[in-house]
Structures are given as C-alpha cells and as structure tokens.
Simulated scan of single mutants.
Amino acid sequence: MATQKRPVSNLLGLAVLGLLIEQPMHPYEMAATLRERNKDTSFKIKTGSLYDVVESLARAGWISAHSTERSGRRPERTVYAHTELGRKEFVSWLDELVRKPVKEYPSFLAAVSYLGALGPDRAVQALEERIAWLDEDVERGRQAQDEALAKQAPRLFVIELDYAVTMAASERDWARGIVREIRDGTLVWPELMTVEGREVWAEQDEAEAPDAP
C-alpha cells in the first residue's frame, strides 16, 4: 500500500513539530533553540527556510497561531502551537521515518563509485583530506555530547549526536582502510585507470583507427 503524500515533506517541519510538543514558540525562538541543541547536525537550519516551513505547517492545519508577543521596538512575533491534527501527523511521520529506510543518494557515494579515475596517488590525497575533516566532525560531535551530559540533558534528547558521531567515525575508519589498501597495493588499479594505461590505450586506438580517405 502506497504511503500517502504529506502536505509538508521538508524535514525541518519535523523539527518544528518536535519543538512545539514542548511549548508554543515563535519561529525566531525555534531557530535559536535548534541551534543551541546542536540540531544542525540533523537538520539544515536556515531562518528563511524555517519561516517558509512554519507557513506550510500552518496552511496544512498542523500548527496554528497561539498568541503574539513584542519585545521593545521589534515587530510583533506570532507564537505557534500544535493543533490536534499536527500532533497526530507528527507521531505518524516520525514513526514512518524510523521504521522504513529511505533510499538516499549521498554525493560521497556517487564520487566513490568513480574513485578509480583519480589514480592511486590522488585518491589517497583526497581520502586523507576527507579523513581530516571527519576527524574534526567526530571531535565536535563528542564535545557536544560532553556538553549535553554536563547540562544533565537526558541522553534520549540528544541521541542523534550519538548516531552522527558513530556514522562519521565509521566513514572515517572505512576511508582509512581504503588508504591502507591503496598504499600496500591490495587495492589494485586496472591498467586502463592509470595515466600510463590510458596513454597506452590511446596509442592503440590511434594505431587501429582506419586511415582517413
């Protein structure tokens, strides 16, 4: 049975609905709270996009204006809260995402499928640079975990940090393994994929090409 398409599919909407489970908020507070809680490891948080998502959720009837507030001379801000429908859709959406793997197409996976085109030396250089970036990601993630524990945040509330660190560390370790295989020669580059091999094949193709009339 096909899953019914939701009127809001941007995952940032899931983050908004999750925040409003706690209490009504205005969009600026939502963005600040998500960043403070390191949710930018899970969601692409841009204030403009968040306002668009809030409007979409309101049109869908999943959230509604709760009140307005003003701070100093700033314009009034609309505070939003869940509707009954919104709570139901949030739980349904979350349940589906946890249960059913979704086919994704990471850019790194696409690049790895053509790793041979870089040649062994350049592939090692590229992978080692990626490993350095992943080292930083892992370190930042672990620091964020430590900070959350220091604030006595329930682990369940920051469990995505654990997942993000685990995935980054796993990718880094995989890349290190590939670098070792390239260096010790166990990951063999087909002759055609090396510079020398391409030159040889090009010469053969040129020699076998029919003479021009």
Rank of each mutant, 00 (worst) to 15 (best):
86 G>V: 00
130 R>S: 00
97 L>R: 04
156 L>F: 11
64 S>A: 15
191 E>I: 04
2 A>C: 07
33 T>R: 10
104 E>Q: 11
168 A>F: 01
30 M>I: 10
107 S>N: 11
126 A>L: 09
191 E>Y: 14
43 F>W: 06
116 G>Q: 09
36 E>H: 13
138 V>K: 03
135 D>W: 08
70 R>S: 05
57 L>C: 04
98 V>R: 12
22 E>S: 13
84 E>C: 12
156 L>P: 02
139 E>C: 08
213 P>N: 03
7 P>I: 15
13 G>M: 01
33 T>Q: 02
190 P>N: 06
191 E>C: 06
175 A>N: 07
210 P>Y: 13
7 P>R: 12
169 A>M: 06
183 R>C: 07
97 L>W: 10
158 V>L: 01
35 R>M: 09
76 E>C: 08
68 T>I: 04
66 H>K: 10
147 E>R: 13
170 S>L: 09
194 T>V: 02
157 F>W: 14
154 P>W: 10
139 E>S: 15
130 R>P: 04
53 V>A: 03
160 E>A: 12
179 V>D: 00
175 A>M: 15
4 Q>L: 14
85 L>G: 00
192 L>G: 13
107 S>G: 08
209 A>S: 07
122 R>F: 02
98 V>F: 13
4 Q>E: 14
140 R>S: 07
140 R>I: 06
120 P>I: 05
167 M>I: 14
144 A>G: 07
88 K>W: 00
169 A>Q: 02
193 M>E: 14
197 G>H: 08
75 P>G: 08
76 E>R: 11
17 L>I: 04
173 D>M: 01
6 R>E: 12
118 L>I: 06
124 V>E: 13
115 L>K: 01
100 K>R: 13
90 F>D: 09
137 D>F: 04
92 S>C: 08
206 E>P: 01
8 V>H: 00
144 A>I: 09
131 I>K: 03
212 A>I: 10
146 D>C: 11
48 G>F: 10
174 W>R: 04
56 S>L: 11
154 P>Y: 12
163 Y>S: 13
58 A>E: 13
59 R>W: 05
175 A>F: 15
7 P>W: 14
187 L>N: 01
201 W>L: 14
68 T>S: 14
69 E>F: 04
193 M>N: 05
126 A>K: 06
73 R>C: 12
97 L>V: 10
155 R>P: 00
130 R>G: 02
197 G>V: 01
50 L>N: 09
81 A>I: 09
129 E>H: 13
208 E>Y: 02
111 A>P: 03
49 S>I: 13
61 G>E: 07
26 H>T: 02
166 T>M: 12
172 R>P: 14
42 S>Y: 02
207 A>V: 10
39 K>L: 15
34 L>P: 06
67 S>G: 05
152 Q>S: 06
131 I>G: 07
36 E>Q: 15
52 D>L: 15
4 Q>I: 09
127 L>C: 04
8 V>Q: 06
63 I>C: 02
207 A>Q: 08
195 V>A: 10
30 M>V: 08
147 E>M: 07
117 A>L: 12
132 A>D: 15
125 Q>Y: 00
31 A>Y: 09
113 S>G: 04
191 E>M: 03
53 V>H: 08
85 L>A: 06
114 Y>L: 02
92 S>Q: 12
23 Q>K: 15
91 V>H: 08
113 S>K: 10
108 F>H: 06
11 L>I: 09
39 K>S: 11
